[in-house]
Design a protein around this nucleic acid. Structure first.
Lengths: 187, 187
DNA sequence: GTCTATAGCTAGATAGAC
DNA sequence: GTCTATCTAGCTATAGAC
């Protein structure tokens, strides 16, 4: 076995950056290669199924991160509910680079024959709503109200990313995170 | 002059559908041709500058619609402020097909060398916020609070479109429109 | 495991007949 | 104004040397 020239983690960073910025169709193999420091053929060695497998791999990695850092934080019984919300929101801030980064769900939801990630995006959003609903209940909201606020939380985060990018002003994202925190903690 | 086989308005409908669903890079000339009923070369006869001009034309048409039906409604002094909000929200519902359609700003914001529409999207969002700020002031909010709510309105609409599409559930969009209406009218 | 070279195809765009 | 036929460039993907 010959040693890898580029670490898997560095390669994933490069792939993620391009897919996030350009979407699935918009990301060309040339850009993916340049961004990782590998040549096209070397990417195919690591991903025999090509571009689709690269995208899936990026999607899965972020999905895993979100599960561990956001969903798990929200459900972590060793912390008080109020601390869980704060930690989850801090990790959301990290995930989106303080409002500079596009959501990978959204980047992959546009182009392509789509059905590629359609189901996984739906599942991700449902899990998102479920875990925010749980924390709402832990904070003594009714189940109905907790779900309402969970959906509203997802809507506001996605919307603030769209608007922050459009206006090139990340303050909108920060304001939104604070609004969400206040909604959960001051009632 | 030989007669047009396809009316401009029907052609625009076809172009709009493809660009909205696929984004700029995702829309191929073959799809654009099929969707309009014209052949590729005929599209080039009508748009000598090619795909970019087609996209610009779609963008401009929607931009115009939004100016007339949403921004103008909000500022129409011949109507009471409460009626203006209701009319604007009805037109927003129409614009997005009750939550089924993607926002063209968002469809064009992802791929490409981007700078294509970046500035026009920014301007559109700024006008959006400005006109909703005005209606807030007409409803006796302070200027600061009116702007806050205007931004929040844009964030919620964009977010609800993203989430409604991801979950394939337009109810989220409808709920959001009602929330916005209540925020303006019940205070 | 990584590379150069290239296959095979489809994209956007054009020429020229009608 | 619309079409068929075609060009070129770029795409995804593969073969095979090292």
């Amino acid at each position: 076995m010959r040693p890898q020239k580029i670490l898997d983690s560095d390669m994933m960073t490069g792939l993620t950056k391009v897919f996030r910025d350009k979407g699935y169709e918009g990301a060309s193999l040339k850009e993916l290669a340049d961004s990782t420091g590998l040549k096209k053929a070397s990417l195919y060695h690591r991903f025999p199924n090509g571009k689709q497998e690269m995208a899936q791999s990026v999607f899965d990695e972020i999905d895993e991160w979100v599960k561990n850092r956001i969903f798990f934080s929200l459900r972590d019984k060793s912390e008080a509910p109020r601390a869980r919300i704060k930690k989850a929101l801090d990790n959301i801030r990290l995930l989106y680079g303080g409002g500079k980064e596009t959501c990978i769900f959204r980047a992959f939801s546009m182009d392509a024959g789509m059905s590629l990630f359609e189901e996984q995006i739906k599942n991700g959003m449902e899990e998102w709503i479920a875990s925010f609903t749980e924390i709402g209940i832990a904070l003594h909201l009714t189940a109905g109200r907790a779900k309402e606020i969970a959906i509203q939380t997802l809507v506001e985060i996605q919307g603030s990313l769209v608007v922050a990018k459009g206006l090139r002003n990340t303050a909108i994202f920060e304001t939104t995170l604070r609004r969400i925190e206040n909604r959960y903690l001051n009632q």
